[in-house]
């Protein structure tokens, strides 16, 4: 018991971070499996989740990365990765939203053009039908 408590005390951050990352990953995979998220938009989440898991499970990697970018306190590196990931995903959302707005605009325009065309055709059909009736 003493051994576990000691391990927990020295690795508290890694354990909490690992559990959170794994839960997050499970949540993402489950959402994709249930088709709540389209595969095209989910890859970036899976990618970010994998990086988070690796960094939380392997403190040596986190330490290595922190040393490279000059961060003295490794847990902060994890937050930095998280913030960067969120930023990238939000930009991707802006791109997706813009694309969808463009498509909605195109569809709206086509719809109005088709409705006008149909009204004109209907008018013509009615006229022809009337002419047909009167000629009989």
């Amino acid at each position: 018991m003493y051994g576990f408590s000691n391990f927990f005390n020295t690795h508290q951050f890694e354990i909490v971070a690992s559990i959170c990352s794994l839960c997050f990953m499970l949540f993402i995979i489950e959402s994709i499996r249930k088709q709540l998220i389209k595969e095209a938009y989910s890859l970036i989440w899976v990618f970010m989740g994998t990086i988070l898991i690796v960094l939380s499970l392997a403190p040596s990697v986190l330490k290595f990365v922190s040393d490279i970018i000059g961060i003295a306190y490794p847990p902060y590196t994890l937050s930095l990765v998280l913030i960067t990931a969120i930023l990238l995903i939000l930009v991707q959302y802006s791109i997706v939203i813009s694309k969808q707005t463009e498509r909605i605009k195109e569809l709206t325009q086509e719809l109005s053009l088709l409705a006008e065309k149909m009204a004109r055709l209907q008018e013509r059909v009615e006229k022809l039908e009337k002419a047909e009736k009167s000629s009989k």
Binding site: T108, Q109, S112, A115, E116, R120
Partner: peptide, 25 residues
């Protein structure tokens, strides 16, 4: 000659473009 009713509000740019598409086609 024609009335083009947009089913969603697109703003002036989208509305004008609809008219331009009609005229072009």
């Amino acid at each position: 000659k024609a009335v083009l009713d947009l089913p969603c509000n697109l703003g002036i740019g989208g509305a004008v473009q609809t008219g331009l598409k009609y005229a072009y086609r």
